[in-house]
């Protein structure tokens, strides 16, 4: 493809603000695959400060690593998304839940793989969840992101959107005894060919957060598709096991096009 590629372990990098650079040469563009959201954010911010573009960009990584920022971007982009309320302290949670109606979904602002995503079927359960959250030491856990519970089949849609193309899409089917559809929670994947209207929505959702290489998650509701999440460092083990298309190839082709621009 006419480009030279080097794998760099982000954990080994040191940035010097005076020297405007890192302790190693990082080339013309960096594709960030850090598993740590904060590491990815700091790496992208510093890279962009010295004129090295990265995929995804700092603003996209920041937006996607915080569920409220993602929601705001989706709303701003006119993307149908579940109704979301944010309470800035535990005090506001009962009022937010009343407004949404039970059951409600409680999610951490930062987190992945369905971790700490909880379904509160009634006020007692929600109170218990809030009590536990208040015991956590991270101040971010004391801001409450509550979402309407969308009645949907026991599955959602994961699309890997690369640039302006849906590289692959799968259904993620919840494991037995589990309502969450994360592959990390045991969900299985099935190939799925989205129709034109859905493709348009998925690409538009990726654009709404800034575009790049993204994992867009959508649900089938009685009122149509709702996009509930956009992932900035998309994982595709589950998706790749269900589709013929090579997702890494699609990503590499996109990166080569971007670096040659």
């Amino acid at each position: 493809m006419g480009v030279q590629v080097e794998l760099v372990d982000a954990k080994s990098l040191v940035f010097d603000s005076r020297e405007h650079g890192f302790n190693t040469e990082l080339g013309d563009m960096v594709y960030i695959r850090c598993i740590s959201h904060f590491r990815a954010q700091m790496l992208s911010a510093t890279l962009e400060s010295i004129g090295v573009p990265c995929v995804n960009s700092h603003s996209v990584l920041e937006r996607c690593s915080n569920k409220m920022l993602t929601t705001l971007a989706l709303e701003r982009g006119g993307i149908p998304t579940p109704r979301t309320l944010m309470a800035l302290s535990a005090e506001g949670v009962p009022q937010a839940a009343l407004s949404l109606g039970y059951p409600v979904v409680l999610k951490p602002l930062v987190g992945s793989w369905g971790r700490l995503v909880s379904l509160a079927k009634d006020r007692e359960t929600l109170n218990a969840l809030v009590e536990h959250r208040e015991e956590l030491s991270n101040p971010l856990d004391h801001i409450y992101y509550l979402q309407e519970y969308v009645r949907r089949p026991p599955r959602d849609i994961r699309a890997v959107v690369v640039g302006d193309e849906v590289a692959a899409a799968v259904y993620r089917v919840s494991a037995d005894g589990e309502w969450r559809t994360n592959v990390a929670r045991g969900a299985s994947t099935e190939a799925f060919e989205p129709a034109g209207e859905l493709i348009e929505l998925l690409v538009k959702a990726a654009d709404a957060v800034g575009g790049g290489v993204l994992g867009v998650d959508a649900m089938e509701s009685s009122e149509g598709y709702l996009v509930h999440e956009v992932n900035g460092t998309v994982e595709f083990r589950g998706a790749q096991s269900a589709v013929q298309t090579s997702i890494p190839r699609k990503i590499v082709e996109y990166l080569v096009r971007e670096v040659k621009k």
């Binding site: 991270n138 900035g232 460092t233 998309v234």
Partner: peptide, 9 residues
Amino acid sequence: EAVKEDWGE
């Protein structure tokens, strides 16, 4: 490294 709170997609 062990899994941390900010790990994921």
